[in-house]
């Protein structure tokens, strides 16, 4: 490596050493680099001392503060949602378009367990007269969809679907009552007593 194309400053810091033709300058460490090094290290030390040595707020702490708030809100929301509003339901049930929308929602979310048109499969048949949990009336079906039955694998659909959708879905489920199927699931539950 020739020194010809080096400037004066470079010649001054060139070290007297040569490895397979490779030489080294000995320029000082860039100030911004040294500053970055120390700032990062100091920040790290301070952070560790505050959060670990002095027991600053932990991730768990952060979690529980937020959790308490959100869970309360969520509970109140679902409680409110479960209130069955007769007028809303009647509006949806009397509109063929909305029932059709309910059928779409059913196909997207429910057929995996209740089979096409509610004939029943993993979940019960929704078209016969027998009911396991609700009384088969709109005001019974609606809150059940919202709460689901997580123990048996049915999600709480209140978290997935909007209020409008829940009414449309209820209207569709009521509309398929009594329809005939090639391969319906055997009845489960009881025939609810009429009031």
């Amino acid at each position: 490596m020739s020194e010809n194309n080096m400037n004066e400053e470079e010649k001054k810091v060139l070290l007297d050493h040569d490895y397979d033709g490779i030489q080294e300058f000995d320029f000082p460490l860039p100030l911004w680099w040294v500053t970055t090094f120390w700032l990062c290290s100091l920040f790290g030390a301070g952070y560790f001392v505050y959060y670990i040595v002095l027991n600053g707020p932990s991730l768990k702490h952060e979690y529980f503060v937020e959790e308490n708030k959100v869970m309360e809100q969520r509970e109140a929301f679902l409680e409110e949602l479960k209130n069955f509003k007769e007028e809303s339901y009647t509006t949806y049930a009397s509109s063929p378009e909305m029932v059709k929308h309910g059928e779409y929602l059913f196909r997207m979310n429910c057929v995996a367990c209740h089979e096409e048109k509610g004939a029943g499969d993993i979940g019960p048949n929704l078209t016969d007269e027998y009911w396991l949990y609700s009384d088969g009336t709109p005001s019974g079906i609606f809150p059940f969809i919202i709460e689901g039955n997580p123990a048996n694998g049915m999600p709480a659909w209140g978290e997935f679907l909007e209020e409008d959708d829940l009414y449309a879905l209820t209207a569709y489920i009521v509309s398929i009552k009594g329809t005939e199927h090639e391969n319906p699931k055997d009845p489960q539950g009881e025939i609810p007593e009429k009031e």
């Binding site: 490779i22 030489q23 080294e24 460490l29």
Partner: peptide
């Protein structure tokens, strides 16, 4: 550290930086 100075035919910029950044 081998191929850059070889290919560029230039000395490595800073020996002391090599030491500090290697050990850190």
């Amino acid at each position: 550290y081998y191929f850059v100075p070889k290919a560029a035919n230039r000395p490595v910029y800073s020996y002391r930086l090599s030491i500090i950044h290697f050990w850190s």
